[in-house]
Design a protein around this nucleic acid. Structure first.
Lengths: 255, 255
DNA sequence: TAGTGGTCTAGACCACCGC
DNA sequence: CGGTGGTCTAGACCACTAG
């Protein structure tokens, strides 16, 4: 409890250090309660604001979660979804499941998708670049929120050149068995390769809401471009998901 | 400047919203100064603590950086390093550069590595699992901090089974041309494949210091396992780097 | 209702920056 | 030196949770 007000290190950081240490060492197990702010003012001899700032630090690091009126607890971490590049092989697609559905099925979680938008939009720059179109050229987008195990798992926007999706179920809410990749292949665009680009950052306010993110949890943006055997980019899949719940695995040759 | 003290939304969040909006819309360009806290107390009619909390929010989101005595500015984002899986092909290794050195060379940044530790350590669980050893079995580690363009870029620990590195330059500060992968191949362990596992999270205090991370910037943990043609794991490369400065790209077949 | 967190104030004092 | 952020206090008032 060694808080030293005369130290160079600010008191609120010392208090944060104290609890971080307890958590790291497992003496405060996930789910365990931290003392209330009022308690801390007594045991550490500080004002309420100072106790509060210490907790702010831990919240910002994602170590604890606070519920108004109930107190502050050590965060419990759910299992992580391991997204391996093999999930997108033809064999897996042939099983009749789209990418995300297959992932969730593998984990035994029930799955559902919520369609947020379906229709033509002008291509944002990052999409246009990858589809080899000009910025603001019309593209077809399927914008949805994917749920797994009753929790929002990712925001996923799939973009397609218009000519590839007209008259296919890709423009409908249900893209059919095997997902939209299966539809593209039926239409003669046999998929040849994927490029995935990953980037982590803090979420925007909207993303925090849409994914029910705790404070202090980053998101991963995954952008996947699907290329057909003719070398044409036929889809850009642009998604955002909680970094907390996802781990990405890629296997590749050393040659 | 529409701050409404009677709104449900807390005043400090409204102030944060106001500046976030200016930044998003580009009206406050990277490098531009925000008003001082004292200024804000006047223009928004709030106490100092409230103005400060608004800035805390923006700092936590990584949108602004504050320098003591100098003020708060919109963060300037440096260029991102694109780490493509192709960087580890044999052709690139043959060019005589280790993985990181090649990346930095490609960007025209000068490069240097700082050795933090070189020697035997008991294998942590995550390493032992990947090298197929038991936990705490002795392994050889090269623990270093990589610098690029004068900034710390990553913390990188390479772990090796003891029998693979004894008597090789891998145990020395300079592993020689082509890096340790080249040494392993010379010793008859021709590399066959790599597995990379990525995961993003907020940094620990130590990582923040070692990588000079701004508040509100997540890190990416990249763990790479190198497999030789005999199917043996010959190295685990365990690294942590600023999410701000790195983007990861993987190309793989759709078959 | 008692206990918890959430917001806000007014002011003190210190530390760092740049002129 | 004046201006900037950084820490801390003491207290008011509100909102949510649970018994």
């Amino acid at each position: 409890m060694d808080i030293d007000p005369s130290s160079d290190r600010p008191v609120f950081k010392q208090i944060a250090d104290y609890f971080r240490d307890l958590i790291d060492r497992g003496e405060l197990a996930p789910g365990a309660s931290l003392p209330s702010e009022a308690q801390m003012t007594k045991t550490f001899g500080v004002a309420g604001g100072t106790a509060r700032r210490a907790l702010d630090v831990l919240r910002g690091e994602g170590l604890v979660v606070t519920e108004h009126g109930r107190g502050t607890r050590v965060r419990e971490r759910g299992p992580m979804l391991r997204l391996a590049s093999q999930r997108l092989t033809r064999a897996n697609r042939a099983a009749g499941l789209g990418g995300f559905a297959a992932d969730m099925r593998a984990l035994g979680l029930e799955y559902r998708q919520e369609m947020l938008h379906l229709g033509e939009v002008p291509a944002p720059r990052r999409i246009a670049e990858r589809l080899n179109l000009s910025v603001d050229a019309p593209v077809f987008v399927r914008r949805r929120r994917m749920w797994g195990g009753g929790e929002p798992m990712q925001l996923a926007d799939s973009y397609y050149p218009l000519d590839l999706v007209e008259g296919t179920p890709i423009t409908e809410e249900n893209a059919g068995p095997g997902g939209s990749y299966a539809r593209l292949e039926e239409r003669g665009h046999r998929l040849s390769s994927f490029r995935e680009e990953l980037h982590a950052r803090m979420p925007s306010e909207d993303e925090k809401r849409a994914l029910s993110l705790q404070p202090g949890v980053p998101v991963v943006s995954l952008m996947r471009t699907a290329i057909d055997t003719g070398g044409r980019a036929v889809e850009v899949f642009d998604s955002v998901m909680s970094a907390d719940k996802h781990l990405f695995q890629y296997d590749f040759s050393a040659d």
